[in-house]
């Protein structure tokens, strides 16, 4: 039996008809048409489906869509400020070559965004700890960590500039 789930996705209020057993991940990809969030392992090990629900990063595969009733869900599609302006993390990932096959990238971007929001100047250990639930099988992580460090520095610089204005 389908039930109506009302939630906000990337700022847009949506009303989706879903069955009780459907995961938030499948619902985002199929009912909401947002395929940026990837399905890797589907059991919470790989982090490719990381989305932010009410400010907290979670694996969308380990949550039912019906549990998102009334919640605010953010996915990688909501990261860009506009069609031409990338989020500093997206930009840094491109500049540093931090994506190879790219499958893990949306999840890592969401997790890294949350990490930098909470801790604008993370140490290498803090970046590793923060991203330890996201698996990348291509890059060896070095370029991902470079990109996160670089984006964090850029975000700090922009904030410092805003504060002096």
């Amino acid at each position: 039996m389908k039930q109506i789930v009302e939630l906000t996705i990337n700022g847009d209020p949506q009303s989706l008809a879903v069955e009780g057993h459907r995961s938030l991940l499948d619902t985002l990809r199929e009912e909401a048409g947002l395929t940026g969030t990837k399905k890797g392992c589907d059991v919470g090990d790989c982090g490719a489906c990381t989305v932010i629900v009410d400010g907290q990063p979670v694996n969308a595969c380990l949550m039912l869509a019906v549990e998102a009733q009334g919640r605010n869900v953010e996915t990688v599609e909501g990261m860009q400020q506009s069609i031409d302006i990338l989020h500093p993390l997206q930009d840094a990932f491109m500049r540093h070559g931090a994506s190879q096959c790219g499958f893990c990238t949306p999840g890592i971007l969401m997790m890294a965004r949350k990490l930098i929001e909470e801790n604008p100047d993370p140490s290498d250990d803090e970046i590793r700890f923060g991203l330890s639930g996201n698996i990348c099988r291509c890059t060896g992580y070095t370029k991902i960590f470079d990109a996160v460090r670089s984006a964090a520095a850029e975000i700090r610089a922009v904030r410092a500039q805003e504060e002096t204005v």
Binding site: G44, P57, N59, S132, G133
Partner: peptide, 9 residues
């Protein structure tokens, strides 16, 4: 325990 994403749930 597991990862931050898992611990949030």
């Amino acid at each position: 325990l597991a990862s931050i994403q898992v611990r949030n749930r």
